[in-house]
Design a protein around this nucleic acid. Structure first.
Lengths: 211, 211
DNA sequence: AAAGTAGTGTGACAAAAATCACACTTTAAT
DNA sequence: ATTAAAGTGTGATTTTTGTCACACTACTTT
């Protein structure tokens, strides 16, 4: 654990002002997670608000039978909205957050929240903005699964992946199927259709998005 | 428009402390919406944070082709999470909020937010709690449509309705179909199955939940 | 009371998606 | 180099859900 320079923080979080960055730099610690590490799991207490400064975190919902459903990525400059909903929780099935690469996270102990909210307006602007963004994101997910068919959902999924990871997606059909809660065969077939459209180029372990 | 006594507010919003309730009572206005009135529609600016003190508001998502998808109700003591995400927004398709009965809403002008956040800790606790609750709710919706079949989704839908509206649900099969984005015939058939299970009693314009 | 309308029931069929079976191909392991 | 493992392609079949057609019932309106 080590802390981060205020200037570095502001670069990642442009909404922060000088005093806020200094405070966080002073009081928060930085932790590095390895690929595959779980940052957050269902039914967990939070002792920190988590800000991603490097790497990438994948958020997904887990079903009762262990199914997974991809929600969104947290990237540098993002905060984990749920980690800021500090109060206790212990629901049957909640959300999972896993580092998909080596990831550096600023951890702000929960006991500073009152102070931050009260004395650092740029903090609560950031919090509000974080919620808004995530809420929108989640609503878009609902649109997709409520209103769209698999082919459109797959396309939307790939597009989002490409927006974050770049056009070269190192994904197997099985992994995609897991993320959108479908099956490998269905994904294979739909990918073929997208390839015929010219939307993607399909290779082993790799989908090239041309959207 | 008229304002509300602090004591009345606290009764509805137990998280509010005395000073907060006084401030809101002073600065906010109360507005009454009739059944069917739209409180919020896609791509709208918000000038107020809205707190429901009487009645009921239905929140649902609209699809590109005008489909609807029920999300949740706001009841007395609830606030509209999205109305508090004040900043400008104009997304293609967003959320709809409609009064399902005569509904009284406390409208807090957006320009008081900074002050409220800064000087009334019980306000931001309330805001955080509002977000948390809605976020959870929306995640549960995702679970249902991502992982469950229509029969289970219908059952869950009816259960939620019954939790809010009581066991006697004045709904037609068509209305239910609209809310869960299915079709009337499917709903009819599944209701029959639920009736055989003893989960509901089906009558014209009325479903009696026995869960 | 007759006619109209909204709500419901049900069979037949179509479409979307999941599942099964198995062939084949590329990469990794021994 | 041979085997094993992981990834992909594809037809056949089943399940789930949506659609169409039409009958029927219970309320409303005149």
């Amino acid at each position: 654990m080590f802390s981060l320079e205020p200037q570095e923080l502001i670069k990642q979080f442009p909404l922060f002002d000088q005093e806020l960055a200094s405070f966080i730099s002073e009081e928060a610690e930085t932790k590095t997670f390895n690929q595959g590490d779980v940052l957050m799991r269902p039914g967990q207490f939070f002792k920190y608000a988590m800000l991603v400064v490097r790497g990438r975190v994948k958020l997904f919902r887990e079903g009762d039978e262990g199914e997974e459903f991809f929600m969104y990525y947290l990237e540098p400059g993002n905060a984990c909205a749920l980690s800021m909903l500090c109060m206790a929780r212990s629901q049957s099935s909640s959300i999972m957050a896993v580092a998909v690469e080596e990831t550096e996270v600023v951890m702000i102990p929960i006991q500073h929240m009152d102070n931050l909210m009260k004395n650092y307006p740029s903090w609560y602007h950031f919090v509000i903005e974080t919620y808004r963004t995530r809420f929108e994101e989640v609503l878009n997910v609902i649109d997709q699964i409520a209103f769209k068919n698999m082919d459109q959902r797959l396309e939307w999924y790939l597009k989002r992946q490409a927006d974050v990871l770049g056009p070269n997606l190192n994904l197997t059909h099985q992994q995609i199927a897991n993320d959108i809660n479908s099956s490998r065969e269905v994904v294979s077939r739909l990918l073929k259709k997208l390839e015929n459209n010219g939307t993607v180029v399909v290779e082993r372990n790799n989908i090239h998005w041309k959207g």
